[in-house]
Amino acid sequence: MVSSAVESRRRFSLGVVRPTLLAPLGIALALPLLVRFNAYFLGVAAEFVIFAIVALSLDLLMGRSGQISLGQSGFFAVGAYTTAILNARSHLDLAVALPAAAALAALSSLIVGFPAERLRGHYLGIVTLGFGVAVAQIALKWSALTNGDEGVRLETVRLFGVDVGAPLHMYYVALAVLVATIAFSFNLARTRLGRAFAAVRDSEIAASAMGVPVARTKMLAFAISAALAGVAGGLLAALDGFIAPEDFGITQTLLFFAMVIVGGLDSIAGAIGGALIVEIVSQIAAATNGLSLLILGSTIVVVALYFPSGLKGIFARLAPDAER
């Protein structure tokens, strides 16, 4: 009877390096070689990595903290525009522009995070939906700041002084951020704050009885999620060298949403897997934009009806003992 307790003591660690991660990490690192440094493929791969970061951010918010967010594209956009504008107007290095993107996105999340305490389920969904649409509208109409529908073109993208504009470089930069995000999410889930998020999700009443400040915790979940999505947005701006309002909006939000639903809520591997599937479908069906939405939309419906745990459920059956 005590052996499981001993097991728990032994197996707990806040480390990042685990055997199961080495293989995917190795492939990811070697990918440029595998695709013979083809710039187009590297661009697609970098985009996938960036979307995986957003998927993780959304999973943190919806999966782990149980806060419905239909406006993730809003945080993504804030981060992208912050980075682009800082780059285009002040030629700021990514080392400054990316943290700025994170900070501004987190700040913008207060708009929805603050009322999140009082808003349940549907209302929160509607408010976050409105947020995403409002941000897209601001991007389109506040021409003085965002150049309206002409978009923002970035100058040379530098990280710590080094020119990293090429898809190959951005791929590795994004990958580094993704790995850091994975480590962060992994550790978060297994420590006090991550538990507090899950507690608020599962039972606000019991959580507050344990001393968890529910309102503040929800705001924090929004802020962290927004910061991550903001960084991802900044990375996308750096990768594409150009952003315009049509990159952000309801369609983008729906795609992010699809990633975490297909991947299964509250699962790091699921979020990444979901991002991969959405990216692949988007690439295959890229010719007719509508087709990818149709496929993914139908997939979401099927998943919700028949496979509620998404990819996470499938992973769990394959490796029942793995911790997340």
Partner: peptide, 22 residues
Amino acid sequence: TMTQMVVTLGLFMAILGAVGAL
């Protein structure tokens, strides 16, 4: 609530996509 929301959002995407594709 989450599941119901997911399905209606999935429909949103699918119908939007279908209309766009057609």
